[in-house]
Design a protein around this nucleic acid. Structure first.
Lengths: 139, 139
DNA sequence: ATGACTGCAAAGACTTTGCATCTTT
DNA sequence: AAAGATGCAAAGTCTTTGCAGTCAT
């Protein structure tokens, strides 16, 4: 028999929070942000539910940034930009590669390709500005 | 005054090992493989040198697979395939995107883009075979 | 009432780091 | 001899997990 899932206020809040932001949160960020409304929330619950959502295909991992795994409630294919200074992750919805690149690559190399991740790295405008501000100071 | 770097047998061995393989090793893998020839090697040294190589631009991180960071001594742009079953990482040297995609994306979104990572995910042939073997068994 | 879900805290896994010792120059 | 590099072990960070209590059905 399948283990049935019950409603849970915390789980609901976690998923809602994930869907309401485009920050690609870490477990820690979700915990801190939900703590206010759910003072007795625990990290264990956040992690347990994140893993559940992932298994259910409700969320995707965007990878590990600065040691913390980051999650995305948008599971349709799109690219990301990661600021290597502050760790911000943002969507680049319009950068998509050929529709059947996965299939092509799979055939070309004899692999079973399910998906791909395209991630750009660099410095976001905010960190860029901080940069020039510091230069001015040090002059 | 700049801190000068001295020669070190262990460091040399670590970098050589990284360059001699296409497995995109983790710290643990390097440690285990160098242990034979350098019995007194320690994980601290492996990690310290990996971080140094990265800062010097001698190696790149390929990301975290199964909780462990994986490294690549080939720093010229190329794509990767990750087997989500066994964690194998292999190079896909011929999959390259447009030369100035980074610049284009940077301009389009007002970001300073340094590089991008294109990583395919799926199942490698070996794990695929194990899969069908299990199916036969369970029949 | 049953069994799923959670909080708490302990444990796990990976990585970093302080300090005494050993190496390189 | 001076200063960098290492081994060892402790500490740090992020994540998972066991268990007893709580909550949804």
């Amino acid at each position: 028999m399948e283990r049935t899932q019950r409603y849970s206020r915390k789980r609901d809040a976690i998923l809602t929070a994930l869907r309401a932001t485009d920050r690609h949160p870490s477990a820690e960020w979700l915990y801190q942000n939900l703590k206010e409304e759910h003072p007795d929330l625990s990290m264990g619950t956040v992690y347990r539910n994140l893993n559940r959502f992932r298994q259910q295909g409700l969320i995707q991992s965007v990878g590990v940034v600065g040691g913390q795994e980051r999650f995305d409630a948008v599971t349709s294919p799109h690219s990301h930009f990661v600021c290597d200074r502050c760790g911000e992750v943002r969507d680049l919805p319009d950068i998509r590669l050929e529709e059947d690149l996965d299939r092509t690559v799979g055939r070309q190399y004899g692999l079973t390709v399910c998906r791909h991740e395209l991630t750009f790295h660099g410095v976001c405008p905010i960190c860029m500005q901080k940069n020039s501000a510091e230069e001015e100071t040090s002059t």
